[in-house]
Amino acid sequence: MQNEEIMTGDMLVEIVENQLTDSNPIKVKETLMRLMMTGIGRDEAVQMIACALSIEVFDVAKNEGSFDLKRYTENLAALPDMPWEFED
């Protein structure tokens, strides 16, 4: 199970890196720049973005729904606070 979790994390980071390269969605690049301007290192910032992405990936897998760009954008805007920190 642990190897699968690491692979999944690596895959999420790869997706984020692709989003950054493609500037799509642009909010990912904007979020990276904003986080880095606050003193967060690039690698840590990419990990945070990958966490926000994981919420969408999990929801799509669990609920067989579609990717919710609006919610992903809202989760990116909340960083560096992690979105699940707000849940009771």
Score class of each variant (00 low, 15 high):
Leu53Pro: 01
Asp43Glu: 15
Gly41Pro: 03
Val57Ser: 05
Leu53Cys: 06
Gly41Ser: 13
Glu56Tyr: 02
Lys27Glu: 15
Cys51Ser: 12
Cys51Phe: 12
Gly65Glu: 01
Leu69Phe: 00
Gly65Pro: 01
Ile40Asn: 05
Arg34Ile: 01
Met36His: 10
Gly65Val: 02
Glu44Cys: 12
Cys51Asn: 13
Leu35Asp: 01
Ile26Trp: 07
Ala52Met: 11
Val28Ser: 11
Gly39Asn: 10
Thr38Arg: 13
Thr38Trp: 08
Asp43Leu: 12
Asp43Gln: 14
Val57Gly: 00
Val28Phe: 10
Gly65Trp: 01
Ala50Lys: 05
Asn63Ala: 05
Asn63Met: 08
Gly65Gln: 02
Met33Arg: 14
Ile55His: 10
Glu30Cys: 02
Leu69Gly: 00
Thr31Asp: 05
Leu35Pro: 00
Gly39Arg: 10
Met37Thr: 06
Glu44Gly: 12
Val57Ile: 13
Leu35Gly: 00
Asp68Phe: 01
Ala45His: 06
Ile55Trp: 06
Gly39Tyr: 11
Cys51Leu: 14
Lys62Ser: 09
Phe58Pro: 00
Phe58Leu: 09
Lys62Phe: 06
Val28Pro: 04
Leu69Tyr: 00
Leu35Ser: 01
Gln47Ser: 15
Leu32Trp: 11
Ile49Leu: 13
Gly65Asp: 05
Lys29Asn: 04
Phe67Ile: 01
Val46Glu: 04
Ile26Met: 14
Cys51Met: 12
Cys51Arg: 11
Ile49Pro: 06
Ile26Glu: 15
Ala45Ser: 15
Leu53Lys: 03
Leu35Asn: 01
Ala61Gln: 03
Ala45Glu: 05
Met33Trp: 09
Thr31Phe: 08
Asp68Lys: 01
Gly65Ile: 05
Glu64Asp: 05
Lys27His: 11
Asp68Tyr: 00
Thr31Met: 08
Met48Gly: 05
Ile26Thr: 13
Arg42Ala: 14
Ala45Arg: 03
Ile26Gly: 03
Ala45Lys: 05
Val57Met: 09
Arg42Ile: 09
Asn63Tyr: 12
Phe67His: 06
Ile55Cys: 10
Asp43Pro: 01
Asp43Lys: 14
Ile40Gln: 04
Gly41Asp: 11
Ile55Arg: 10
